[in-house]
Design a protein around this nucleic acid. Structure first.
Lengths: 171, 171
DNA sequence: GGATGGTTACTCGGATAGGAGGTGTCCGAGTTCTAAGGG
DNA sequence: CCCTTAGAACTCGGACACCTCCTATCCGAGTAACCATCC
């Protein structure tokens, strides 16, 4: 089992966008440069986040991406589900029915115990991810990370963010 | 993210082997027939379980597989790790270092907060999997599942298990 | 000087090739059971 | 009747193609800023 590498990129980008001034945007190309990624490919994941309602996109010059809601209300689970899809990692194929003796469907109304156990474990995983808020990630970074790294990140944000246009308030 | 389909097969096979009489074995071909799987392919996963020390294999006629230790001491985590590998699902590629400004390595001695958060969530998942013992899975099946399904499973075990050979005690 | 229209450049969005890992299959090595032959 | 021995059949184990999904890339649609022109 392996999570898509896009998850890492998506979380880093979301954390960077959370550091922007209120209403400001940042182009996808800038985010790609910040993390050494292919701009075209990063766009794919940013689109997924936009489709999931986590980000907003502003087209045209001075456009870019920004968070669609406060970082306190964005969890890592939201991002992971947006990139990886909503389906659970364990998908029961009901192989218990594929034996040589075919029982009627009425013998399988009770859910598969193995599937239930796997889903319980995945529920714990999702609960832990839901508890990890993007705001906490950013706060921890600002307080705990190396000062040089924090300074470089802040300088990058200051350099590439596009201030909110006065005439178009953030919805 | 998607778990390998072999995980489902491996758990079902392990649960079936847990229902065998003490020391008895069952060939991989019988397990494959029980779940409608390709024998050659199922062997691949059973070999992984054997390499992980969860199963034991007995070669030759009247051979097959059996649990290497009591079902109470086998968790779903053991099986998942044996099939999927021990690496965590989220693998940090340290893209935080790939920016245009290259800071010295000393600026990154603190672990990445995003990686830490993802690993915390995965730790919760693994803890939940470790709590799901194979013995409990089998017990729940015998008590809760449809009687017809239980009867069919027991009949299958009775039909295909190979009793322990008197002269070669289980190690 | 101010308003207006066209041009330009920048942004995101979706459709299109390439590659790694899981899926499925095959054949070979090893071991035990069986049965025939000899004592 | 018992032991020995050769054969055969069944088992697991590892090596080889195929296929799906993730990775990576390109080009097109749309929009806002900019600038030249006109009033």
């Amino acid at each position: 089992m392996k999570l898509s590498e896009g998850v890492e990129a998506a979380i880093h980008c979301a954390a960077t966008l959370a550091s922007l001034e209120d209403g400001a945007t940042m182009p996808g190309a800038a985010l790609a440069a910040q993390f050494g990624l292919s701009p075209s490919y990063l766009l794919k994941h940013l689109q997924a986040l936009t489709a999931a309602g986590i980000l907003e996109s502003v087209p045209g010059p001075a456009g870019g991406y920004r968070l669609a809601r406060p970082a306190e209300r964005i969890s890592l689970l939201d991002i992971v589900l947006a990139v990886e899809g909503p389906l659970p990692a364990f998908r029961c194929n009901e192989i218990r029915r594929n034996g040589p003796v075919r029982l009627p469907d009425s013998a399988y109304v009770k859910p598969c115990g193995i599937n239930a156990a796997m889903l319980r474990a995945e529920k714990a995983w999702r609960a832990a991810l839901a508890a990890e808020k993007l705001s906490a990630i950013v706060a921890d970074f600002l307080s705990d990370a190396d000062p040089r790294s924090v300074a470089a990140a802040c300088a990058f944000v200051e350099r590439h963010q596009r201030p909110q246009k006065p005439g178009s308030p953030k919805q």
